[in-house]
Design a protein around this nucleic acid. Structure first.
Length: 496
RNA sequence: GCCGCGUUCGUCUAGGGGUCUAGGACGCCGCCCUUUCACGGCGGUAGCACGGGUUCAAAUCCCGUACGCGGUACCA
């Protein structure tokens, strides 16, 4: 019997949850759920105090929740291997750092930032393009490998600042098996003596991540490709501790349409919302985002496209994750959004619309009317909030005319509209229905020997202010006789 | 520069030696439906980066090249 699957999403609270981070979380979650008894763990990697952002952790939690991703163990619902914030595990890392020094796998270094800069500069001048603190250079630096034992003790006792560095072996080939990429290998000579414990006493990502994954019994590390290059350091660490490393899986990056990693700046330039909270704020369908993101770098292998989080959970396997970076396609996201939007009942949409309208201080009509309006609008919008903008004429007399539509208001329009007006004026409220309204329009165009559009478009402009939109006759029926006549009169008055 | 990882239609992908004159989805274009705009239906456009091998046979395996991306911090 294999150990139960345990995966973690380990974001750094340095800002709002990025869309790429969300996908990493999603893949971890899907992987956990695709195994019976699998656990999805949230660990906050707040070891960089200079970049810490107060609201970030809350934003991460809220974003995951919005997507329907349930955290099995995390800061808010700890399991047995807590705490789940690295800042609260500081002592632990120190203990393991010391252990590494004792076993000869790490050492103290006292070099100042200036001295490190000087070293790099010196090396660069002598033709070394990527200076490293490695097996060669460490011999001429200030550390417990070069300094006499008693001086090291003296410095430590004096409370002098130090870091702990990993003693990377001079020549060694580090190999590991990546679940997505297969065989990967690095030469240790390309690695530097990575700082493990910083001078502020906090661990670096590398140490903390290894120690925590081990202590939290993580079985699979699923993370972005940007970590692939530092994985050999982690492998070295595992073996220094004598621990079995977890399975590794490095996900392809999400790319910007203009190339490169989808960074915050790039995304903004291209009009792509980059933070999950932006999707929440702009009323995207969470199921659509999830579905879209799942398919960005993964596919189930058949021709299916639409799957709920639950279904994805059953379909997901790591070996179907692609290797190459995936370009974010906003139009496809919108397509997904439309799919999920149309699935919802008019009643549900009405409730959601009320919530949105409430925030924007817009007053909406009663449920019956609202749901009928939604029914007419639903097939024409991409996002739920567009029901409000496209359907504004259902809720208020148009304040202005779409300049583009106005081109269809011709010289003969007033006459035709007037004639139509006088016909529908004779209808009772009960008779004011789509079929009747349409046949009366036909009467007018036939009598005048003109095409349908000659009257239809001006009428639409008068009633909705727009040149497009839901079925005009159904819309007029819903609007009611009084409103329609009022709008026609207003328009006749304004446009002549 | 060095190290690593990638590369199938514009984009996301299917494909894992013959069934590929390469399939699906988004987008785009056209037609139908609708005398609006959409939705829907039908059809179309367009791709195996390049060069060598291996093999009777390569999009699929191997090697190079090019290009892209990532990493190269007391950031994660």
């Amino acid at each position: 019997m294999e150990a139960p699957v345990r995966v973690r999403f380990a974001p750094s609270p340095t800002g709002f949850l990025h869309i790429g981070g969300l996908r990493t979380a999603l893949y971890n979650y899907l992987f956990a759920r695709s195994h019976t008894g699998g656990k999805f763990i949230l660990r906050i990697e707040d070891t960089d105090q200079s970049r810490y952002v107060e609201e970030a952790e809350d934003d991460i939690l809220r974003s995951l929740e919005w997507c329907g991703i349930v955290v099995d163990e995390g800061p808010d619902n700890p399991g047995e291997v807590g705490p789940y914030r690295q800042s609260e595990r500081k002592e632990l890392y120190n203990k393991y750092g010391k252990e590494l020094i004792e076993s000869g796998h790490a050492y103290y270094a006292f070099d100042t930032t200036e001295e490190l800069d000087q070293m790099r500069e010196r090396l660069q001048k002598s033709g070394n393009p990527s200076p490293k603190y490695d097996a060669i250079t460490r011999q001429s630096m200030k550390n417990s490998l070069t300094l006499p034992q008693d001086e090291v003790t003296k410095r430590l006792e004096a409370g002098e600042e130090y870091v702990i560095r990993l003693k990377v072996p001079r020549r060694e080939t580090i190999r590991f098996e990546d679940l997505i990429r297969g065989h990967v290998s690095f030469e240790s000579k390309g690695l530097d003596d990575q700082v493990l414990i910083k001078s502020d006493g906090m661990p670096t990502y590398h140490l903390a991540n290894v120690v925590d994954d081990y202590l939290m019994k993580i079985t699979h590390v699923i993370r972005g490709e940007e970590w692939l290059s530092s994985t050999p350091k982690h492998i070295l660490l595992y073996s220094a501790f004598g621990w079995e490393p977890p399975q590794m899986a490095h996900l392809p990056l999400i790319m910007s349409p203009t190339g490169g990693k989808l960074s915050k700046r790039k995304a903004e330039e291209e009009g792509i919302p980059v933070n999950t909270k932006d999707y929440i704020k702009h009323h995207y369908e969470p199921e659509a985002l999830v579905n879209f993101l799942a398919y960005l770098g993964w596919s189930p292998g058949d021709d299916s496209e639409i799957h709920s989080l639950n279904e994805l959970t059953r379909l997901f396997t790591l070996d179907r994750v692609s290797k190459g970076g995936a370009v974010f396609n906003h139009k496809k996201l919108m397509w997904y959004n439309e799919q999920y939007l149309r699935e919802q009942s008019n009643k549900v949409l009405a409730n959601r619309l009320r919530e949105i309208a409430g925030k924007e201080k817009i007053t909406l009509p009663d449920d019956d009317y609202l749901e009928k309006a939604i029914e007419l609008l639903k097939e024409r919008v991409s996002k739920v909030d567009e029901l409000l903008s496209m359907g504004s004429f259902f809720f208020d007399d148009p304040k202005e005319y779409d300049p583009n539509a106005l081109k269809k208001w011709k010289e003969d329009s007033p006459v035709l509209v007037k004639e139509y007006r006088s016909k529908i004026d004779k209808l009772s409220d009960e008779e004011f229905e789509a079929v009747k309204l349409k046949s009366l329009l036909e009467e007018v165009i036939n009598a005048n020997g003109v095409g349908f559009g000659k009257l239809m478009m001006p009428l639409r402009i008068a009633v909705t202010g727009q040149g497009f939109g839901p079925d005009l006759f159904a819309s007029m029926e819903l609007l009611g006789k009084e409103t329609v006549l009022r709008r026609i009169d207003n328009t006749l008055h304004e446009l002549g």
